[in-house]
């Protein structure tokens, strides 16, 4: 599903964030990306949805090579990848329903289809009863669930999450993880950068540890491996 070959990324200011990464992630895999702060986890993730371009190397999502995609076709790539962030990135003036529907409006879905799909995903994240609420009327965990609903509403084959539980208390974090696992069970590939030791050690999945922009460890059912 996702393949990186000899990928390097140096930021314009000279910071070498990724230094030669080779990785393959299969369809329907669930992968944690761990590592110390500043190790390059976020950069690794940004390369996947083409927020950043690699300085060197090739990245393939499905059978598309990112460097070969024309600038104006990037939106088409983004529609196949759902992205979730630590800070949720919801639009404050739109309701839960509208926030999720937004992702379908930009691809010009019909109103009936939008309605059907939004209700489906709100059911998955268990927020059907709060569809009319505004983001500030929700708890952090609920807001993150809205963000997840928006990320999966157009059926992406990959869901990428950068510290999705970073701002949440342990209990709420587990709620989110259950939802992500459910989504993964439906066949969606999930790549998730995290600092949450407890989650990684309890819900055992493949772990890719990044240090200094390189893969330091890649275990099929690994643990967190860092003391916080």
């Amino acid at each position: 599903m996702i393949t990186m070959k000899e990928v390097w990324k140096t930021y314009p200011n000279g910071v070498m964030a990724i230094n030669g990464i080779d990785i393959h992630i299969d369809k329907s895999e669930f992968v944690y990306v761990v590592g110390p702060s500043g190790a390059g986890k976020s950069t690794f993730i940004k390369l996947m949805y083409r927020e950043e371009k690699p300085t060197r190397g090739t990245i393939k999502i499905g059978d598309e090579e990112l460097s070969k995609i024309k600038e104006r076709h990037i939106p088409l790539l983004r529609r196949k990848i759902g992205v979730v962030f630590q800070d949720f990135k919801l639009l404050p003036s739109l309701s839960v329903y509208e926030n999720v529907a937004f992702a379908l409006e930009v691809i010009e879905e019909s109103k009936a289809n939008i309605r059907k799909r939004v209700m489906q995903v709100l059911d998955i994240v268990r927020l059907k009863n709060k569809a009319r609420f505004l983001p500030h009327e929700l708890s952090g965990g609920e807001q993150q669930r809205v963000a997840i609903a928006r990320a999966i509403v157009n059926n992406p084959s990959v869901l990428i999450a950068d510290e999705p539980t970073g701002n949440l208390d342990p209990e709420t974090s587990w709620e989110i993880m259950k939802i992500l696992e459910e989504i993964n069970d439906r066949g969606t590939t999930i790549v998730m950068a995290t600092h949450n030791k407890e989650i990684v050690n309890t819900m055992r999945k493949r772990v890719i540890a990044i240090e200094g922009g390189r893969v330091a460890r890649d275990d099929a059912k690994g643990g967190y491996g860092y003391e916080r």
Partner: peptide, 8 residues
């Protein structure tokens, strides 16, 4: 956000 969800 629009760009993130694939708006042209």
């Amino acid at each position: 956000i629009m760009k993130l969800v694939g708006a042209t």
